[in-house]
Design a protein around this nucleic acid. Structure first.
Lengths: 141, 141
DNA sequence: AAATATAATTGGGAATACGAACTAAACTAG
DNA sequence: CTAGTTTAGTTCGTATTCCCAATTATATTT
């Protein structure tokens, strides 16, 4: 009668998920900061690594308002990391893509992230890490 | 020779951790927003639920600068969620604690969070969820 | 051709976060 | 016991992030 649907979740699992996520995010922020970037810029970079979306698409990916993305791209463009190119067929829409400079930033960032996150997994055996990767992978869309 | 220490991390696991974390954070933000709060305020609330730290301690918990926390508490205080009480022995230090109003906010928020995160785990069996909780738990400090 | 819809930008405003400078209280030396 | 230093918080200035509402310019519909 009083079971809330979708809420049958072991409190321990909830807590573990939330705490792990905060730990991961903290390290991601740290990695970003080490390259003078914000978390949002990091995400933007990761998205643009293999896509050249229009502004609205990028906004959807990031879960942000279009206007927020406008400013985000403004600043990134001013820093020379990304560029706007007018999307051929539709005169209104704009495609965003990484510049060579932006792309150059990527390997260092990826290494930095790996280096910061890896230690988190050190208390697990290799077999356990594989099992964890499998479980998390199955949870994702 | 060229193995970077601490970087022996399966790319799949790295990716799964990062993606899961973003998914969890998005849901946490959503839960916070549903109660007109920010993610940082949510964290603050969770910390104050079972602690009455001094400002500097709270800053350490949150990984923020002292000055950032000053403003955070200013606004939360103005909203009636927390209160500052001068810590007896040391005339400089201030203890932060939840008000009755702040405490009242908690159950609803917790339920909201559980309700939003639970669906993420639905693609796992109950046994798998337990294993996941165990693995994540062992990763945390 | 006029009305409507869509893509992005602009402007206003609040919250978040940092660093540097400041105030007040508490130690520490001499 | 006073002078200097450290510590706890706050304040100030600035940048970023984010939203909402209004605007501009191009497309689409009718």
């Amino acid at each position: 009668m009083f079971t809330r649907p979708g809420s049958e979740l072991d409190p321990e699992l909830l807590d573990a998920l939330v705490q792990t996520s905060f730990a991961v995010m903290a390290r991601l922020s740290q990695a970003a900061a080490a390259h003078d970037m914000s978390l949002t810029q990091l995400r933007m970079l990761a998205i643009l690594r293999d896509r050249q979306p229009k502004m609205a698409e990028l906004a959807r990916y990031l879960g942000l308002d279009r206007s927020s993305v406008s400013g985000l791209i403004d600043r990134a463009e001013k820093r020379g990391l990304v560029q706007r190119t007018s999307s051929g067929d539709d005169g209104r829409s704009v495609r965003v893509s990484l510049t060579a400079d932006g792309r150059r930033l990527d390997p260092g960032l990826t290494a930095e992230i790996a280096g910061l996150i890896a230690p988190m997994t050190h208390s697990l055996t290799v077999a356990e890490r594989q099992r964890l990767a499998g479980l998390l992978g199955r949870m994702l869309p």
